[in-house]
Design a protein around this nucleic acid. Structure first.
Lengths: 208, 208
DNA sequence: CCGCGTCTCAATCAAGTGATTGATTGTCAA
DNA sequence: TTGACAATCAATCACTTGATTGAGACGCGG
């Protein structure tokens, strides 16, 4: 899609493209995807519209660029956390912690991802980027739940795939009402945990 | 076109407004909110742009009109179902059934609601219409879960509000990926049910 | 200093895009 | 019949928006 594989590529181009993507993301947060205008992006970067079009030829390419930077941020954050060999419950808590961290420290990422997810329905190019991300997340959750079921710490009758979808849905729902979500985030994750853990009566290793 | 036996001309406006709203909703389904154009609406209704503006003065008013028709559909569907005095579990299943029914028979309603929910973040006028709808839904779920907890059929340690949010999130998430959702709908609702019901092995223990 | 590729911009285009204007038609009460 | 009014439309305005053009500026190897 992009012709960046020129023999001699200047650093400057990549920097500009990054700056453009950052500006675009900020504007998406402010005005939503439908309010995204190339002129606004150019103005925020401090360049001419034509210059923007030089670096990012079409708006379609711009959208894909934004999608890719989001993907990179997502994967970077994914990589940052230590994938330690913990108990399924701890891994689940890690997952929640990570979500909360993102929502608190990087709400823009969350908002833009929501917008992209919405757009993905109609834009195959965006869907092609976002779908793997979502699938990856689900897969993570499925693994955790499966491990928890198999080692007896979670309910034996849990359906890992369904549980993963429920977790993703519940957390994703918080994204969409980012305002008061910090208030209820903990109650949700705790409830999710309770709904997954094997009931206390039949379980010896219990914690409140 | 000659009108049928319409006693007054007044009705005509309401009919037009309804037709406009319907066309707008169809176009939102097709092209999304950002792709909604007044000209397209007028063309679909079969009227001039000016005529459209006669009935619905501004695009903002148009959006609010759509939001209100969605609200009416939602409430109509709400009213249609018999609010029988059933067990909490049956009421929950009824809720799921109702969701599935809407997704199957009225997917447009689901899509437009998703679009409106997204727009509500930036459009206070839309938020003012959609927020009560969401709150109403949550309240329904909270009541069901609370009743289930209190009569002992659900887990005694369930947090009704959190559980309601989880259910709403899980179902709402299905809305957003309407394509393959019929496949996984049942597994999700079943898992939700299992996560709420008091475990079968449980003996009588006191609720907190 | 020349030439070449990279990078930038002022100016402009063509297709929209919401909204308005002024005129016209059909219906009904007086 | 006629005046009032609801409803409609062709034409157009004022502005937006993605994209293009042609002219340069900057840096660097030769």
């Amino acid at each position: 899609m992009t012709l960046t594989t020129a023999p001699t590529r200047r650093e400057s181009t990549d920097e500009r493209r990054l700056a453009i993507a950052q500006a675009a993301r900020a504007l998406i947060v402010e005005k939503g995807f439908e309010g995204l205008r190339t002129r606004d992006i150019a103005e925020r970067v401090g360049i001419n519209i034509a210059t923007l079009h030089y670096h990012v030829p079409t708006k379609k390419a711009l959208v894909q660029l934004v999608a890719h930077t989001i993907e990179q941020d997502f994967r970077a954050q994914e990589k940052r956390r230590p994938r330690a060999r913990r108990s399924p419950r701890d891994r689940l808590r890690f997952e929640f912690e990570d979500q909360r961290d993102t929502m608190t420290n990087n709400p823009d990422l969350v908002i833009v991802m929501s917008e992209l997810a919405q757009r993905a329905r109609r834009d195959p190019a965006v869907a092609q980027v976002m779908q793997p991300l979502y699938n990856f997340w689900i897969r993570q959750l499925v693994e955790i739940v499966t491990a928890g079921r198999d080692d007896g710490s979670f309910r034996p009758d849990v359906d890992p795939m369904a549980a993963a979808q429920i977790i993703a849905g519940a957390l994703g729902n918080l994204w969409r009402q980012l305002d008061d979500s910090p208030r209820i985030f903990d109650s949700i994750t705790r409830e999710l945990e309770r709904s997954l853990l094997r009931p206390a009566i039949a379980n010896k290793d219990t914690a409140p």
